[in-house]
Design a protein around this nucleic acid. Sequence first.
DNA 1: AATGGGTGTTGCAGTAAGTGCAACACCGCT
DNA 2: AGCGGTGTTGCACTTACTGCAACACCCATT
Lengths: 252, 252
Amino acid sequence: MSQTVDRALSILPLLAEGPADLGQVADRLGVHKSTALRLLRTLHEHGLVYRQSDQRYRLGARLFALAQEAMENLDVREIAHAHLVRLNEQCGHTVHLAVYEENEVLYIDKVESRYPVRMYSRIGKPVAITVAAVAKLLLADLPEHERRALAEKLDYPMYTPRSTPHAAAFLQELAKVREQGWATDLGGHEESINCVAAPIRGADGRVVAAMSVSAPNVVVTADELLTLLPLVRRTADAISGEYSGRTPAEPK
Amino acid sequence: MSQTVDRALSILPLLAEGPADLGQVADRLGVHKSTALRLLRTLHEHGLVYRQSDQRYRLGARLFALAQEAMENLDVREIAHAHLVRLNEQCGHTVHLAVYEENEVLYIDKVESRYPVRMYSRIGKPVAITVAAVAKLLLADLPEHERRALAEKLDYPMYTPRSTPHAAAFLQELAKVREQGWATDLGGHEESINCVAAPIRGADGRVVAAMSVSAPNVVVTADELLTLLPLVRRTADAISGEYSGRTPAEPK
DNA sequence: AATGGGTGTTGCAGTAAGTGCAACACCGCT
DNA sequence: AGCGGTGTTGCACTTACTGCAACACCCATT
């Protein structure tokens, strides 16, 4: 592992917290100012870091463009998108698509609810991993030991009284989800919001992504939302079929 | 400037084009495989690069999270958001917020149209700089020499017959925009889509961001869209006032 | 089963490249 | 003018990065 690169990259999360000047960066890296300067300069040339008018550094525009391109290249996302839109047209609620990667679950696509009440989420944002329905599906499919190790390592914040409280409960929930092939989050993240989710599988049967429909209590009750489960599962299966090459992409 | 970091960062845009294996990365960097391996490993440890199941490398999840955090820290964005939503409620069309940074203009917020026909754009995506109404406003405010230098350097793709054809025309358009204090894009990017835009200014009068309303011909004609100009300008001015600290943030 | 090409990985010696220092330059402030 | 604070540069030192070559591994192929 390269020390120089390691230091340079450590600057990024540091700047993500907010703008900082040269001295602050050098201190927090534990290096001399001149060293920090050179690292920042290199980051700057690549557009990852931007120097604002007060001379302080912030994260730069290229970062957005990179994240953007990376996202567009995800093939699940590309295949799924049309299906998500169609599902949204049918039920009107917010639809999410998420993947698991290196101990994180993140949204990679979203179709907004037609109703005025919208939930807060954003593409690229890491998901509340211990409670989100999509996260349960993705983690439930990990190999036994990996799943267990991850569950032990996680924090279990009590967003609401219904949040998953600890690793044991989480593992039990994952077992159930794995068994039944779908998942819910009933007010575990935000008191009034419920979700139902279904897995998207590759040709080998492994779960490659998960999708969910979310709606606040004020629009539909949890029971009503559950009646959408068959529709959600059908959509997920359609995406699975297309992704794994079984179903040819439908003619547009 | 640091060679090692420079090489490591050069890997990112390379991977943005699509997944690549070790050999390909080493070749395109012009370094030995073992060197490329170490760089990739370092990037991997920071989560910027992900190793997918077929061993090839792709951009990683941390990149999304970083871009995400960077975005949330933009204070213009935070202040503007509520105003954009309100404007969207009033007119129903797609509303964009954009900033200029290092020769690029990019969207940093967006509120979707209520109408079924939506235009394609995405937060973080670089804007078609030679034609977009928001780009004109942002560039029109650059210092003379910088504006001229940039205009000469740009490409002028003819998206439609109405696209800005060359630097001279662009500079002339910028002068006009600077003069009148607002801008339009009438079918310069996509044949059937029109936009009106207004600038958001900081306390010193410099343009810090620009916002626009966009709608396709099939929903409203260009003339009808122009009748929204006063509303757009009022919204932009309200944001300017709040951003520069003149108007206190309204009570929520 | 054995062979062979392709790819990823490791240990090592040489030296290029990054580091910290100290001096300097450049503000804005009193 | 003088002074703290911050960013920048040139330089000698030596750390830490590089490329090499050998190795390990996987999978086709025969």
